[in-house]
């Protein structure tokens, strides 16, 4: 094996312009020169800690977030968290990530469209705070090989761009890609039902022409924008957030198959969608006030 063999013998050339100094172990035993704690996903726990410190008042004072069944999320091992998605600039993602990291002390990687990566500054901040582009290979690596928690919103922009009149009516769950990934990675899907996000930033009107011109997935006019002007872009209304973690859904199929039955995938995906839809309706039946829960 070559790796242990010294390449330079006793004949070291003093005249060589490119000396082979492989035997002399001049690298490797030096102290680690890393300065930051950015991991291979671009996530930095230090950045996240700072972001959590800043977000904590919003989480607990503004939204007054309440969880139910948080203990159903495992303390270790991979799991795919699946939630309903709402609000023009959705607050459900940061609330879920913040809550789990705060209560369970383990990181959550948020999967989203790779469009975010192309936006200067936002893309970098997104990656530093745990954002990962939603590619099957990425999800597999996170869930199967690194035993992490990944959060995905199968509705995608169909959920966040829907108007206020359609609130709490879950959109199609894509083509069930999240189920296939969970099957391949051999991890459970843990559905999380969220209420409050719809009222935090309701979409009044959509301007598809403007969106096309700007190259954005959608361009909403929100109630926040009408009420607060430009400040409304970053200010959600203080709706009360309630989250309910549903029991993990296991698929009794072997991991790492080349392909899984498409009908089975669609069936499971629809099943999870209806579980979430039912929970959302159930939680809304108990809700007396949008603002006070």
């Amino acid at each position: 094996m070559a790796s242990g063999r010294p390449i330079v013998g006793e004949k070291d050339r003093s005249t060589a312009i490119v000396p082979i100094r492989i035997a002399a172990d001049h690298i490797g035993d030096r102290e680690d020169p890393r300065l930051s704690d950015v991991d291979e996903w671009g996530r930095s726990e230090r950045t996240r800690a700072l972001a959590r410190a800043m977000y904590e008042p919003i989480y607990s004072k503004w939204f007054r977030t309440e969880w139910e069944g948080l203990e159903k999320i495992p303390a270790e091992g991979g799991a795919l968290l699946v939630a309903n998605h709402a609000g023009a600039i959705p607050s459900d993602a940061p609330v879920i990530m913040h809550g789990i990291e705060k209560e369970l002390g383990r990181p959550v990687y948020g999967l989203a469209d790779y469009f975010f990566r192309t936006v200067p500054v936002i893309g970098t901040l997104w990656a530093r705070s745990g954002g990962v582009s939603a590619r099957p290979a990425n999800a597999y690596r996170l869930l199967k090989e690194q035993d992490q928690l990944a959060l995905v919103f199968p509705e995608g922009t169909k959920g966040t761009s829907k108007s206020f009149t359609d609130r709490y009516q879950l959109r199609r769950f894509g083509r069930g890609g999240f189920v296939e990934i969970a099957m391949r990675a051999g991890v459970p899907v843990i559905p999380i039902a969220v209420i409050g996000a719809e009222e935090a930033m309701p979409v009044v009107l959509r301007l598809p022409t403007v969106a096309r011109a700007l190259g954005l997935p959608y361009f909403p006019i929100t109630a926040n924008l009408l009420a607060l002007g430009p400040l409304g872009i970053v200010t959600p209304f203080p709706a009360k957030f309630k989250l309910r973690v549903l029991p993990p859904v296991y698929f009794d199929v072997p991991a790492d198959q080349d392909r899984y039955s498409k009908s089975r995938i669609m069936e499971e995906s629809e099943h999870i969608r209806s579980l979430l839809q039912e929970s959302v309706y159930d939680m809304l039946r108990d809700r007396r006030s949008v603002w006070f829960g």
Binding site: A2, I27, E40, P120, V121, I122
Partner: peptide, 22 residues
């Protein structure tokens, strides 16, 4: 590039020689 801070992976010069030799 403003607003981008990509992650890069490197390989040390001697490791290149050692890998090819291997």
């Amino acid at each position: 590039i403003f607003g981008f801070d990509p992650l890069l992976q490197f390989v040390e010069e001697d490791d290149v020689v050692r890998a090819l030799l291997h």
